[in-house]
Amino acid sequence: MAVYAALFLLVASVAGVLTVTADSPEIGFENPDYVVSDGETVEVEGQEYVVQISEIEESGGGHGGGGGGTSLVATIERNVTVEQSEAWANGSTVQVGEQEWRVEIAGENASEFTLVEVPDRQAILEADPQADNETVARDDGEYVVVTEDDESTLVPVEEYFPTPEERSYATGDSFAYADHTVTVDGVTADQAVLVWEATETESIEVEDEGIVTLVETDLVAHFADSSTLHLSSDIEGYESQVAQIEQFEQYNSGLFRVLILGLFSVVLLLGAAFIPSRY
């Protein structure tokens, strides 16, 4: 009985030593395509990306790591140029600069449109101390009451207010609008379409061992430390390392079960040795 107990104890000891001393493999790249520090810019196929590394609350551990605490995440950003457009309907009012304008398109086969100034009549009347602040309507039209030397005169609005400014634009013409230089892309009887280029920020978040596509390149991300990101196109190498880690975890789990079973067998054998004989 003592011999069997010693044998199981030896097996359990060997399994325990192997479990404790075994080094767990970890993901790593000897020659990554890109090594980027926090805040640096990396160029991928002619496109520049800015990398920002930050910590987030960890929802689960990666390969070889435990859960809980925080984990690292990289935000990869680039500025891209996109085409934007806007349609102005015939008869609508638009704001260009500090002035309002009315869009006018003449004819079914028009190739241009006209912006007609919409004067701020209320502001003009309030700025004139001799004019009433409101126009008056008569049977023959609309008037402004102007008082001079205690004598009031009705002045037709067409004569009182300045002639509206007009600006015409044809297809292909450009002008300033809303902090952009816009180009007339097309004109129909119903509307005029304007196009311009604007810069937008494209943002991608990637966690440790995540796959990210930059331009048309697939890269696996790995944090060498809390401020350095490695990006590698060796996806097969990464998958091979993952397989090795999974195999190690299986072997380590098996050794742990051998350790428990060996210790249990030793206890069982020693316990059986002290059971009194019936004969």
Rank of each mutant, 00 (worst) to 15 (best):
V193K: 15
T181M: 11
A189F: 14
F161W: 00
P162N: 05
T199M: 13
H180N: 15
E159P: 13
Y169S: 05
F161E: 02
V206R: 00
V136L: 01
A189L: 00
V157A: 12
W196L: 02
E205A: 11
Y169N: 00
S174M: 09
D149V: 13
E165P: 09
G186H: 03
S152Y: 05
G210E: 08
E165A: 14
W196F: 11
E148Y: 11
V195C: 06
N133P: 07
A127E: 08
L125Q: 02
E200F: 03
E142R: 08
E197Q: 12
N133M: 09
R138N: 14
T213Y: 04
R121K: 15
V187R: 05
D185R: 12
V215W: 05
D185V: 07
A189Y: 04
D173F: 01
G172L: 04
E207Y: 11
A198H: 05
D149A: 13
D173I: 03
S174Y: 05
V136E: 04
Q130C: 14
T188L: 11
G210Y: 04
V195Q: 03
E148M: 12
A123R: 07
E148K: 08
S152T: 10
R138C: 08
E142Q: 10
V144W: 03
E205V: 13
L125F: 01
T171W: 05
E148W: 05
F161K: 04
V146R: 02
T188G: 03
T147K: 00
A123S: 10
G141I: 03
V215P: 08
V118R: 05
T135F: 10
A176S: 15
V193L: 13
A192S: 13
D120A: 08
V195H: 05
S174P: 08
S168I: 01
D120T: 10
P119Q: 10
V206Q: 01
V145A: 06
V155Q: 04
V187H: 02
T163S: 12
Y169A: 01
Q122P: 04
F175T: 08
L214F: 01
V182W: 00
A192G: 03
Y169V: 01
T153Q: 09
D149H: 10
D179C: 07
I211T: 07
T163K: 13
V157E: 14
